[in-house]
Write a protein that binds this DNA or RNA. Structure first.
Length: 411
DNA sequence: TCTGGGGTCCTAGGACCC
DNA sequence: TCTGGGGTCCTAGGACCC
């Protein structure tokens, strides 16, 4: 039996998940069948479209656009807030369902999985998986079936929703080549413009173009997308272990532009709390700390520093972040700010020197706080600097609604 | 109160080393 | 005796994905 790959893609994931949750709760209306979107909170300046129904799509609404622009396109648009804990639950249920069919399941994103399959009737199996997900979990998926991951992914993006597509080698010319070159995985906005300027408009054009010219104009990505256009991809299923992350970052858009360094420092502290807690939770330390922010004009700034001794300590992360920030900040208003930890190293591999003892004490304090917070909630311990301030003391994690999900009987 | 948040990978250029 | 040539490390910045 030949080894094949499935790419399972949830149709309009966030919106579908919200829809199936509402139906589970007993609502009559299926928001998939009306013009509706999932969007961030406008008042917190996070009002962009995260997902849309097919009905909303018909009005020309696209993911990533500001909510106000979408409302102009469709005045009757129904808007629902994002709910990440729901999405994680749905994503995990889908994962468990797919694991029934293969040991090799790769989470490519919250709503996409690759599955390695060896089966006599792969297409039949793909339909079975698709239908079982719909029946058991209440949302629809597209399944792409192909000889490699790239083609499986391209296949699942063909016609939506609730469909199975194959994209075998012999189907590349008829099913994939006619598509706009921008549809190809790894051809984004910038590359598409470059390709168009070279007279390349379809995936076929790209597949038949000169690889040296592509390399010249686009660089190594040019070689990659040329391979993709010809259906070549040798990558295997990669099962991400917990703690395999290469970087940990959190950021937030502020409710108002901030000009006061003391307030900015409080946000830096709140974000340090989050990235610190996260990196300690996976037993790692970071050699590189990076701060980034957006000013009132949406211009981005970034500054980073490699440390001699890796850290996972909240106070240390905070101190370095403030230092990095003040080194590049020219007193412009700050709209958004974030911290990212890179060059992660396993705690087990790190031998503290005797000079580090003081730091190790601080670290054990951090760990104690982590333990208490995970038991009693984040708000049980709060740094004094936040008292009487209208700034959350720990920030990060994609603006969730606070609603606690009680889904024991579902998913 | 128009433009989120989480990631990965690649490259250019400067500093520094032998 | 007109300024080599390897190499590594670091930072900034850009491109892509969802």
């Amino acid at each position: 039996m030949k080894k094949l790959y499935f790419h399972v893609d949830v149709n309009n994931a966030f919106l579908s998940w919200e829809a199936s949750y509402r139906i589970f709760k007993g609502e009559k209306e299926d928001i998939r069948n009306i013009p509706s979107v999932i969007a961030g909170d406008v008042k917190s300046r996070k009002g962009i479209i995260l997902a849309k129904s097919n009905e909303a799509k018909r009005y020309g609404i696209i993911t990533g656009e500001p909510l106000y622009a979408a409302m102009k396109k469709c005045e009757s648009l129904k808007v629902f807030p994002s709910n990440y804990s729901l999405y994680k639950k749905c994503s995990n249920s889908l994962y468990l369902e797919l694991k029934k069919y293969s040991n090799k399941v790769e989470a490519f994103s919250i709503d996409e999985y690759f599955v390695e399959i060896s089966d006599k009737n792969p297409v039949q199996l793909a339909y079975k998986i698709k239908d079982e997900i719909k029946e058991k979990l209440g949302f629809t998926v597209n399944v792409g079936v192909a000889e490699n991951k790239l083609l499986a992914k391209m296949a699942s993006e063909l016609k939506k929703p609730d469909m199975v597509h194959t994209l075998f080698k012999e189907e590349i010319k008829t099913k994939m080549w006619p598509l706009d070159v921008g549809e190809l995985f790894m051809v984004g906005r910038k590359t598409k413009v470059k390709l168009n300027n070279m007279g390349i408009f379809t995936i076929k054009d790209l597949a038949l173009s000169d690889i040296d010219v592509l390399n010249n104009k686009i660089g190594s990505n040019g070689i990659l997308i040329h391979r993709y256009a010809n259906g070549c991809d040798l990558s295997q299923i990669s099962i991400k272990d917990h703690g395999k992350e290469k970087s940990i970052g959190n950021s937030t858009t502020l409710k108002y532009d901030i000009f006061d360094i003391n307030d900015i420092k409080l946000y830096i502290l709140a974000i340090s709390e989050m990235v610190g807690t996260r990196i300690r939770a996976i037993n790692k330390r970071a050699f590189t700390i990076s701060i980034h922010y957006k000013d009132t004009k949406m211009l981005r700034y970034r500054h980073q520093k490699k440390l001699i001794r890796p850290t996972s300590n909240t106070t240390e992360i905070y101190d370095y972040s403030v230092k990095l920030f003040t080194e590049i900040w020219q007193s412009e208003g700050v709209r958004a700010i974030g911290i990212s930890l890179n060059d992660l190293t396993d705690l087990d591999n790190y031998q503290p020197s005797i000079f580090d003892l003081e730091h190790e004490n601080i670290n054990s304090l951090d760990e104690t706080i982590d333990r208490i917070r995970s038991k009693y909630g984040n708000d049980i311990i709060k740094r004094a600097s936040f008292i009487d301030k209208d700034i959350p003391h720990i920030i990060g994690g994609s603006g969730d609604t606070k609603e606690q999900l009680k889904l024991k009987s579902w998913l």
